[in-house]
């Protein structure tokens, strides 16, 4: 029993890497624009299907398909941004409905192009077992977990050191003050969408490589990412990483201890629990006031 629990903790940790990338993208866009992009999970889904096409049509290893996914997903992210930025009135409500609509478009576009069949990688190298003491995983899970950590680390460095990163942070904390400091909020918002696209690309390829994909997955991923940002609290990057792992572990423990049918329910219950008991998130500090 202990072994089973250890194993599911390990699996949850590994899947948490991809979850973190998705949630970081969602949080980044929320930070700069104060909107929730409900089509974010569909961008991840798009990357996964690009990897599927690259592998099934051209024999590319999913890892090698990341550049293609980057181009297509980032272009789509920019398109989403261009549409969302056109909203003038009642932005909070209308951006929700607009990105909800964009999510429907993307999900159904994937359905039309790739059909409803379940897909997964055929790469034997990625599916090989990796043994770590008593713990098992697929090679792809380890590879993408390391890649996710590296990317999250890179993002952290970028946000704290580079000019654009600091601009993103400035716009998230106070848009008007950032404007006065000569930061162009429009460009910063665009950059945050592109970075979210980069993270979504890698996450999408990771999910394709270690799991199965189908068109309805995008919507589910958006919800997972949103749950993680709620767990994390607004504006806490370490919180997002921990929240992602917490969701991953909760899901895998539920599958191990109860049933796979309840996997989704576990995440939702965790979400509602945190939302009602600790509205500022598990890791969010006290909210700043004016």
């Amino acid at each position: 029993m202990t072994e089973l629990i250890l194993q599911s903790l390990y699996s949850g940790l590994l899947v948490g890497g991809a979850y973190a990338l998705i949630a970081l993208g969602l949080a980044l866009v929320f930070g700069t624009m104060k909107i929730i992009n409900l089509a974010h999970g569909e961008l991840v889904l798009l990357a996964a299907y690009v990897a599927y096409t690259a592998e099934s049509q051209f024999g590319l290893n999913p890892l090698a398909s990341i550049p293609f996914a980057l181009v297509i997903v980032c272009a789509s992210a920019v398109l989403v941004y261009l549409l969302v930025s056109r909203i003038r009135v009642n932005r909070e409500l209308n951006s929700l409905i607009l990105t909800f609509g964009l999510g429907i478009i993307l999900t159904n576009a994937v359905l039309i192009v790739w059909s409803a069949n379940i897909r997964s990688t055929s790469s034997a190298w990625l599916q090989d077992a990796v043994v770590l003491g008593p713990l098992f995983s697929m090679r792809s899970e380890v590879v993408f977990f390391v890649l996710s950590l590296a990317l999250a680390g890179g993002l952290w460095w970028w946000l704290s050191r580079s000019w654009y990163g600091r601009a993103v942070r400035a716009v998230s904390s106070n848009r008007d003050a950032a404007k006065l400091m000569g930061i162009d909020p429009v460009r910063t918002e665009l950059v945050s969408f592109v970075v979210a696209g980069v993270l979504a690309s890698v996450a999408g390829v990771a999910i394709y490589s270690s799991s199965v994909i189908q068109p309805a997955l995008g919507h589910a991923l958006t919800i997972k990412a949103f749950i993680i940002t709620v767990l994390a609290g607004i504006g806490s990057m370490p919180g997002v990483l921990l929240g992602a792992v917490l969701l991953g572990v909760t899901e895998s423990l539920t599958v191990t201890l109860a049933s796979s049918a309840l996997q989704e329910l576990a995440g939702m219950v965790l979400f509602l629990l945190v939302l009602f008991v600790m509205p500022n998130g598990l890791f969010g500090g006290a909210r700043r006031r004016g």
């Binding site: 549409l83 056109r86 909203i87 009135v89 009642n90 209308n94 409905i97 607009l98 909800f100 609509g101 964009l102 999510g103 429907i104 478009i105 993307l106 999900t107 159904n108 576009a109 359905l111 039309i112 059909s115 409803a116």
Partner: peptide, 22 residues
């Protein structure tokens, strides 16, 4: 028009309405 993904047009409709005539 789209036997399997016909909701795509609902998505387009939603987006277009929000942008053009909210």
């Amino acid at each position: 028009l789209f036997p399997s993904g016909h909701q795509i047009i609902l998505g387009v409709l939603l987006g277009a309405m929000i942008l053009l005539s909210p």
